[in-house]
């Protein structure tokens, strides 16, 4: 899903280049605050990881598949600033060493894939976390929603850029509908893979999941009679608790917007099913074009896109992801509490 040269006109390309440069500069400074001198090796290895998992394909509809963008995943795992750096470096290397994504479109690609998906994924994840119980496992459904929303939003930003600097007389409504409808579907795949990956990391090394760090269980003190009490939480986490109520409303609002977006936007899409299917086909080509060295992850079709009214499919998608997230959350919580029992038994 990399924009090539010539898709947007020169002024727009230069402008997005400036936006990307500014964003990366801020991310560089902020990431260094987080990782100090370890920035280079840790961000470098995370970039290599993102590069590798971008090769994972998942099916989206009738014999077609998308591949992971990894923005939300990286944001949840290593924090938004480091994630912006990692994704930007991946895009830079892909443009220079793989001719994947045009050099003049590098700014556009960094703005869309490197920054929009990361920032949207991170904000949504944080907002969801704010209303869920404070447990590391909650980061799983939160990241699912973050990933789901991040993909169509990036697609809408692309439409916006196309409206400004695109070089075709396209009806923007149709383009918006096509892009958003299609990317809600891709977003579902992104959400499933992201949530499952995060859940695998949370169950083994919750300390490595950046978004789960403020959620760690408080230290506990053992009293003389053997009972356990929570240690006094430090000031920072108390602050986080008070911030929670404000974000709860934010999340509810966000959820409604997401549903509306999915529904309304896909309604437009259903008005132009041909376009959607054509784009779907092109993504199918993408699948065959991609390097399959790391093994394709071909799942059987799990839904005829053409058969369901697409507006409905969009809303269904959001609901499915929420349901999957809740189930995953239950599973992870079950596993970790089982482990606690085992530990207690020892």
């Amino acid at each position: 899903m990399h924009v090539p040269d010539g898709f947007l006109d020169a002024p727009t390309s230069v402008a997005t280049g400036a936006v990307a440069a500014a964003g990366v500069a801020v991310a560089l400074r902020k990431a260094q605050d987080e990782l100090d001198e370890r920035t280079a090796p840790l961000a470098g290895l995370t970039a290599a990881f993102v590069f590798a998992v971008q090769m994972l394909n998942f099916p989206v509809g009738v014999g077609t598949s998308g591949h992971l963008m990894g923005g939300a995943l990286a944001a949840v795992l290593v924090g938004p600033w480091t994630a912006v750096l990692c994704l930007s470096v991946v895009l830079l290397v892909q443009a220079l060493l793989f001719a994947d994504g045009g050099l003049t479109a590098l700014g556009t690609n960094i703005t869309l894939i490197g920054m929009t998906t990361v920032v949207v994924g991170w904000i949504v994840t944080r907002a969801v976390l704010a209303v869920l119980p404070r447990r590391p496992a909650c980061v799983v459904p939160a990241s699912a929603l973050g990933a789901l929303v991040s993909v169509p939003v990036a697609a809408l930003v692309f439409v916006l850029l196309f409206a400004v600097g695109g070089q075709a007389d396209l009806s923007l409504g149709a383009l918006t509908a096509t892009m958003a409808g299609w990317h809600v579907l891709i977003g579902i795949g992104e959400a499933v893979i992201t949530a499952l990956t995060v859940s695998a990391v949370v169950s083994v090394r919750p300390d490595l999941v950046h978004a789960a760090r403020p959620l760690r269980a408080p230290l506990r003190l053992r009293r003389a009679d053997g009972s356990l009490v929570d240690a006094e939480p430090v000031a920072a986490s108390r602050q986080a608790r008070t911030g929670r109520r404000d974000t709860r409303s934010l999340l509810l609002g966000g959820g409604v917007v997401a549903l509306l977006l999915a529904g309304v936007v896909s309604f437009f899409a259903s008005g132009d099913p041909d376009g959607l299917e054509y784009v779907a086909e092109d993504e199918g080509f993408l699948d065959t074009a991609r390097d399959h060295a790391f093994g394709d992850f071909a799942l059987a079709d799990y839904g005829e896109v053409g058969g369901i009214p697409v507006g409905l499919a969009g809303i269904l998608g959001v609901l499915v992801v929420v349901a999957v997230g809740v189930l995953l959350f239950r599973a992870v919580r079950g596993r970790s509490s089982a482990r606690q029992h085992e530990d207690a038994a020892r």
């Binding site: 840790l42 290895l45 995370t46 290599a48 990881f49 590798a52 998992v53 994972l56 998942f58 795992l77 290593v78 499933v192 893979i193 949530a195 499952l196 990956t197 995060v198 859940s199 695998a200 990391v201 083994v204 090394r205 490595l208 992850f297 799942l299």
Partner: peptide, 16 residues
Amino acid sequence: ARVVAQGAGALFIRSY
């Protein structure tokens, strides 16, 4: 997908 994603999770831990 769960199995494949678990691989991805393990991959992240290894990489980090």
